[in-house]
Design a protein around this nucleic acid. Structure first.
Lengths: 370, 370
DNA sequence: TTGTACGCGTTATCAA
DNA sequence: TTGATAACGCGTACAA
């Protein structure tokens, strides 16, 4: 604190120490050698004035760097924290950027009409877009105008931007094929939210046409490649609870009684949804996989399943985050960023089996003993 | 972009539009009325120059505000993402700060010797410390020197700083008392990590004396108030897996056989640890709660438990985060911050019962039929 | 090894 | 409603 009550600046420190401001500055940045005696004097002066070190705002204006990478998350921040895939990706991201000792600035991408996206006035050196919907244009435009390095994780950004992608469609087809091989012909799906509004609804062509979330659409497309006419429910979020409610819609009537035309297998677009589906099935008295097969997507270590291992298709979430971080790191170093593509791995568990014997009778009642 | 290749500044825009820089500035900040015609001209000029809007760094230098609140997390960032209590607190924090439209800057508090804590050169307007150990001094000093508003969530910060606290000690005693009432006399505990090094070890007085994590110590103290001489294990983290490994240490020998002197109840310092303990017990052939009672701490909706509801003591994690956010918000508005204290609520579940009948025989073999 | 001088891009103040 | 001007606090060529 200076005598007149202002917060001390580096100029005050320099004056107190009897050196120039540049010398004082250099003492703190450590980029140039300074005589020990001089350094001591400067540090002593700083101490006596209660100088807190260079103001990061001013330093950042001068250097053009803030040491912050913005992470733009689609939807609520809370949602991001609750989704294991997102948190694991963030983990990989933080890991890859640790060497650059940058902080991660969490920003919500809520494209309110007429307002500038929050990314527009955040002092960031680069931006990562995670799980944003197709409506990322405004944010992307803002970032491009500012000339910031950017990486998009699973969002339709066009070829202009480095992206981290996943073979959602092929992977979904693969796991659907697994069920087909087992003999399932009456299969339903529970999708991730299809649009911003995140409402739980039966799938209709209208709703699919109005969907904006690429990940959900791609996974649905893969599924439909194998089961073109299958029914489904779009969930309101990747949560166990949502899986429970959605599965109930598929398995039971409004009064909670099992439907005769219920599917023999459920394809959930996330492991959490799958866990919920399994729980709903158990509550309805169905055994998994004997009465109902369930598969998930993601390959997170899904808690909540007892000791049963979920059949799923695993995505390399950690690697995705890390790849994004590495690209950011490169771009901050002036090199061009590249897109990186990842593929999923089928992982057999204990939640799928052939459909129950009596299913033919159940679905389309036929004379017995034929 | 200006003709000479520089990025356009507001001065360029003003010149192009034939107005002063202050007018141009005001057009973007919107704080003063500007004639429509003038605004149009300025915006058109900005458009033609590809001006991306005011540079947040410069604006922040001038206004002294960055619109960023730093969140200092103890330990790895990944850890923070994996801990449901932390994520829920972050959720509440984000919620309470949403109106101020600030971003959250995630920072790791790793006090490396000799280096300034990262918070020292982050352009933040305020700081929240979450789950930091007793070694928060350097960070706290740095924050104080910079005169930043700060709130400490569950950390020993002294009376100088607004804090959000929890009655860890009393709550722990309460849930231990619950077990005592049920008749348990041979009880063991699994604690949160006691120190930075996060190693899984049997509790010894030495290790407790060397502990640095207040939360773990407070919960242990409450437990010991009821069970002064109980054995225990300090886990390496609040994770299901850690609960499994720790519980095995308490229940079985190195060769995996149940110990005769095993406890009839386990007090875990977090729900995740408790879930792990239950799983370990099941793997060892023990039924919960018939053969072993298990209690947790936190009251998160612990997945991974099947349909069994965990007996635990619930903390208002969301409210804690929100309270921290509200205090920050107040302090940013110039009002003084206050400390807020929260208490936990006992929540009976299905994982506790009276100790098994044969326990007296087992622990201290006695002549039957007495 | 140290000092001088300038500019980074913006916004607040005040006057017109 | 607009304009001129002065900070904001620092880093860095360049010269000494």
């Amino acid at each position: 604190m200076t005598t007149d009550g202002r917060r001390a600046t580096i100029a005050d420190v320099a004056r107190e120490a009897g050196v120039s401001t540049s010398t004082a500055s250099v003492v703190f940045s450590g980029k140039v050698n300074v005589a020990d005696a001089t350094r001591e004097r400067v540090l002593a002066a700083a101490e006596s004035l209660g100088y807190a070190g260079p103001d990061p705002r001013a330093a950042s204006l001068r250097t053009g760097r803030s040491g912050i990478v913005g992470v733009l998350l689609g939807g609520e921040l809370r949602h991001a924290f609750l989704d294991p895939v997102t948190t694991v990706m963030m983990d990989g991201l933080a890991d890859a950027l640790a060497d650059d000792s940058v902080g991660l600035l969490l920003l919500r991408d809520d494209p309110r009409e007429g307002e500038a996206p929050p990314i527009a006035d955040a002092p960031v050196d680069a931006v990562v877009l995670i799980g944003c919907s197709t409506r990322i244009r405004p944010a992307l435009d803002a970032v491009r105008r500012r000339g910031l390095p950017v990486v998009v994780i699973e969002g339709d950004a066009g070829a202009d931007f480095p992206q981290v992608t996943l073979n959602n469609r092929e992977a979904s087809a693969e796991i659907a094929e697994h069920l087909f091989q087992l003999g399932h012909r009456n299969v339903a799906t529970i999708t991730l939210p299809l649009a911003e509004d995140r409402s739980r609804l039966a799938l209709t062509e209208e709703r699919v046409a109005a969907a904006t979330v690429d990940v959900a659409l791609d996974r649905l497309a893969g599924f439909r490649h194998v089961y073109p006419d299958a029914p489904g429910v779009s969930s309101a979020g990747s949560l166990v609870d949502e899986g429970i409610h959605s599965a109930r819609m598929l398995l039971a009537d409004a009064d909670g009684r099992l439907r005769d035309d219920r599917p023999t297998a459920i394809v959930a677009q996330s492991d959490l949804l799958a866990v919920g589906a399994i729980r709903a099935a158990e509550e309805l008295g169905l055994r998994v996989p004997d009465d109902l097969s369930v598969v998930g997507f993601d390959g997170i270590s899904a808690d909540g399943l007892g000791s049963q291992r979920l059949t799923t298709i695993a995505q390399p979430a950690l690697a995705k985050g890390r790849a994004a971080g590495e690209q950011i790191s490169r771009m901050l170093a002036g090199e061009p960023g590249e897109s990186v593509h990842f593929t999923c791995t089928f992982r057999a568990g204990e939640t799928t089996a052939s459909p129950p014997r009596d299913v033919a009778d159940r679905v389309t009642p036929q004379p017995r003993g034929r």
